[in-house]
Design a protein around this nucleic acid. Structure first.
Lengths: 244, 244
DNA sequence: ATACTGTACTGATTTAAAGCAGTGTCCCGA
DNA sequence: TCGGGACACTGCTTTAAATCAGTACAGTAT
C-alpha cells in the first residue's frame, strides 16, 4: 500500500510518526461510516450538543461564530485529513458552527469508536491529540495575526499557512494550490471587509507576490511572501517531543 | 472543610461537578509542590520544551506571543484557580511565553502527577479537561472579539469576561474586582494602542458604564455593559454534558 | 531635594480600513 | 435569450484607530 492510497489523515499523521501496520489498520477502521454534505448547509450548528466528530476526506469546511449583529468570524478551516468537532465529542456542546464550503466527503466518528481506537493504540491517540494541538496553535496564531498584523501581512500569512497545510496532505506546494474560497470567506476569516480583501489581493498581485484568482492560488515569490508575513515555516511541522 | 478553605481550583471545579472526598483529596495532593515567581520575569519562554504545568493559587499571569517587530499579543490571562501550561505538558513544546503580572504563588504539577491523578479519578480528569476546554472557548471568543468588535465593545467584553472568571473563584462580583493590569496590558490584549485604550476607558467611564482606575475595576451599569459588549453571561458557566 | 521611571492621560495629525455606490462578467435556470 | 444571482472589482468618502508629541503625577532611588 503506497502513501497515495491512504486517506489524507493517514498521510498527515505519517509525516510525524511512523505508524505500524496495526495502527494503520485501526486508523482505516475509523473511516467506515462515510457521509456526504452539500456546500453551504451547516453540518453542526452553534449550541448543538452531543455531536459526532468527522474526519474530512475531501472538500473544505469552515468553522465560524456568528455575532448578534450578523457579522461572522471564521475561526478555522478544515481541509482533507483534518478532524472536525473533536472537541465537542470529547467534552461539551459545540460552541461554533461548521459549514462545508464545497460538497464534502467525511467519515463520521462516534465517541465510542474514538475511545476504543485510543484504548487500542496509545501512539495513535497521541498522534491525533498532537494534530489537535497543532490546530489550536493555528487558532492562536490566527489571533495574533488579527490583533497585530496589517491587512497585507494577514492575507500573506493566511495563504502561506493554508499552503503548508495542504502541502502536508499532498494537494498543494510552494507553487500554489486550488482554493474554493470566495473573497467573502477571506474577509470573514481575516476580520476585513470584502472590499478591502479585494484591494489587498490586487496589491499582492501587482507586487508580484501571489495571485488569488479563479479558484487557484499561485505563489509568484514565495520568499518575498514569507518575508512580508513574517511566516515561520517551521511552526506547523515541528514534531512534538512525545512522538520522537 | 468549607468552600473558603479550599484552593481556588477546587472552588472552581466544584462549581461544575460535586467532587467526592476522595477526589478532593487527590486534588489537594496536586498542590504539594509550591512555587513562587516574581512579577515581570517569564516563567516559561516561547519555544521551551518539557515544561511542567502549574496551578495558579494567587496572583495573575498572562500568556503571550512576541512578534518579530517587537509587538506582542496577549493570548490569555490566568487568574487564581487556572491551569497554566497544561497543553505543553501533555503534548509538546510551549508555543508561547508566560509572564507573572504580579508576584505569584503556584503549585508545580509534573506530568507524572497529573497522569496518576487522572488514572485514579476519571471524573476529576473530566473536570480538568472541561476547564481546559472552557479556556479554549475563551481564546476563540477573544479571536472573534478582535476580529469583529470595535474597541469599546472589545474592552467591555474583556472586562466582563474577567469579572465572570474572578467571580467564579470568589474574588470578584457584579460590583467590580481588583485588577493589577496596566493600560499597556489591555492594549496588548485587545490589539489596540495604549493611547487608544486610555481614550476608550475614558469614554466608558464618562458614559457611566465602568471605571478602571487605581488597580480596581468598578461596574457602574452592568446591564448597559452587557448590552454594549453583546456579552452572553452563560457562555462561561454552562456545564458540559459529560458532567451531568 | 532632585532626578528618574512607570503609569495615566491629552490634543493634533495621519493612516488604514470601512462604508457606500456603483460596474463588469460569468453562469445558470426559466 | 433573457433575466437573475454570485462573485470580482473599482472610485470616492468617511471613520476608527494609530502615531506623534507631549503633560501630569505618583513612587523610589541618589
Amino acid at each position: 500500500m503506497t502513501s497515495a492510497e491512504h486517506s489524507p489523515l493517514t498521510r498527515k499523521l505519517s509525516a510525524f510518526v511512523a505508524l505500524s501496520e496495526g495502527e494503520l489498520a485501526v486508523l482505516e477502521q475509523l473511516h467506515q461510516r462515510r457521509r456526504s454534505f452539500v456546500a453551504g448547509c451547516d453540518m453542526v450548528h452553534q449550541g448543538q450538543s452531543d455531536q459526532a466528530a468527522f474526519i474530512l476526506s475531501a472538500g473544505w469546511v469552515c468553522s465560524y461564530k456568528l455575532q448578534a449583529d450578523g457579522t461572522r468570524q471564521i475561526v478555522d478551516f478544515q481541509v482533507p485529513g483534518d478532524f472536525l468537532g473533536l472537541r465537542s465529542v470529547l467534552l461539551r456542546t459545540s460552541d461554533h458552527s461548521f459549514e462545508p464550503i464545497v460538497d464534502i466527503e467525511a467519515a463520521e466518528v462516534l465517541k465510542s469508536d474514538l475511545l476504543d481506537a485510543f484504548a487500542q493504540t496509545p501512539r495513535l491517540a497521541t498522534a491525533i491529540l498532537w494534530a489537535a494541538s497543532r490546530d489550536e496553535a493555528m487558532v492562536v496564531e490566527h489571533l495574533v495575526g488579527i490583533g497585530r498584523r496589517d491587512a497585507d501581512a494577514r492575507m500573506a500569512h493566511f495563504l502561506l499557512e493554508l499552503g503548508s497545510r495542504l502541502a502536508l496532505v499532498g494537494i498543494g506546494s510552494k507553487e500554489g494550490f486550488d482554493c474554493p474560497l470566495t473573497q467573502y470567506h477571506l474577509a470573514d476569516t481575516l476580520g476585513l471587509s470584502a472590499v478591502h480583501v479585494n484591494r489587498v489581493l490586487r496589491q499582492l498581485r501587482e507586487s508580484g507576490l501571489v495571485t488569488f484568482r479563479d479558484g487557484h492560488v499561485t505563489f509568484h515569490d514565495y520568499d518575498g511572501l514569507l518575508d512580508l508575513a513574517e511566516f515561520d515555516p517551521a511552526y506547523l511541522d515541528q514534531t512534538g517531543p512525545l512522538l520522537k
